[in-house]
Design a protein around this nucleic acid. Sequence first.
DNA 1: ACCTGAACACCGTTCAAGT
DNA 2: ACCTGAACACCGTTCAAGT
Lengths: 245, 245
Amino acid sequence: MWRMARPRKPLLSRNRIVEAAGALVDAEGLDAVSTRRLAAALGVSGPSLYNHFRTKDEILEAVADAVSARVDLSMFEGEGKGGGEGGNEGADAGGAGSGGDAGGGERDWRGALHAWAHSYRDALSDHPNIVPVLARGPGRRPAGLRLADAVFGAMTAAGWPPAQATRIGALMRYFILGSAVASFARGFVDDEAAYDPSDYPHLGQAHLLAERQREVDEGAFETGLTALLDGLALQYEALREKPST
Amino acid sequence: MWRMARPRKPLLSRNRIVEAAGALVDAEGLDAVSTRRLAAALGVSGPSLYNHFRTKDEILEAVADAVSARVDLSMFEGEGKGGGEGGNEGADAGGAGSGGDAGGGERDWRGALHAWAHSYRDALSDHPNIVPVLARGPGRRPAGLRLADAVFGAMTAAGWPPAQATRIGALMRYFILGSAVASFARGFVDDEAAYDPSDYPHLGQAHLLAERQREVDEGAFETGLTALLDGLALQYEALREKPST
DNA sequence: ACCTGAACACCGTTCAAGT
DNA sequence: ACCTGAACACCGTTCAAGT
């Protein structure tokens, strides 16, 4: 046995950094994350982080990616011919339900999209402060691409043409992220006195209350999701009737 | 006449500040806006800004509000019983068109929503860098509330129940802002080498290119908007048949 | 009322130095 | 290879002082 090098274990790792950053974001918000504060929480000195990430932004991207990775994708299973170690079974496979008047597409793409949308929104509402990071830019982080891939694969397997399958992944993402950003990406202001109701003839005073905002957000999400899926079902039917183009 | 006080005109005004801030955001991005840089662009010294705004964030909110104010609302006109000085006539009242299979709701709420969505998206794409500020939080800035009020007024006038009218305003906002944030709120990364195509079995190499991204974003926006409006038309029809609840 | 310079308490990131 | 202290070039905001 030659001489054992490797004196003591490294204090930091990418994983430990991402975990601490996520906790800090959750507890105190995006603005609270400075390299010095984060390093202090890890019992280490500021610049040490740069041995593991090239910029602070890369750390936040990794936190956002970890949240994306927690989104359930099991509802899309059954068609994938690709790799993966299949770790994503569990989660609440609860009330999918679907509408019913679409006639039951092959393998129920509609129900899968519905369940996925809710799983996605729930993951975001657990970590509202990271949503702005997650929303910006196209989904180019690993977990974001994995989401896009799963949706694309399931939609094409259900009979959607590839171009439409790509669009469905994108438009669902718009709606879900848009709802998350607008709903809980920012603390409510609630300084009602600043808004004069007489400026907005149709809106009642009630519209300005934070509590009411929560109701509206949830109702709007469900109404919008249903409309989106109903509208897509219409396109899907039209596709079955005249399969040209 | 008593002694004239008021020696010389103030150098700054809220308007001048918002204009300069908007130009800086457009030209160099959100991060380029520091109080010192902005003040310098106005030929003034850093802390002067605090005579007109309480925080830097308030300045950015005002910039975002100015962009919202540019969204065309003329397509919602004709039902408002409230105040307002009616300044919003002009703009491109171009290709509304509508789908046609909804049966022509009273005053064409569908066509109005379609035209509005495009006008909104266009306004955002003219100033992509401010979109993250505009998207976050519920629409509590004056222009944001004016938008919500116009949509609500037009939808109730068209026969939608108030609760649904509120939801429609919110869900349309989710989709439009979500699409804007995801599409052009952030420069494309485009370091293709960082992504291994074999990790995403269904996605081709082409999906990772920025140029293709633009196509996808536009197609997804139009497909999603159509689906949303088709789905809402379905709900509207159901409402006409059994006007209970 | 509005603008200034100086100052406070921070930032992200680089770099030579240590082990 | 990984961590450190010191340093650089910035921040947002406050405040006493000027006019």
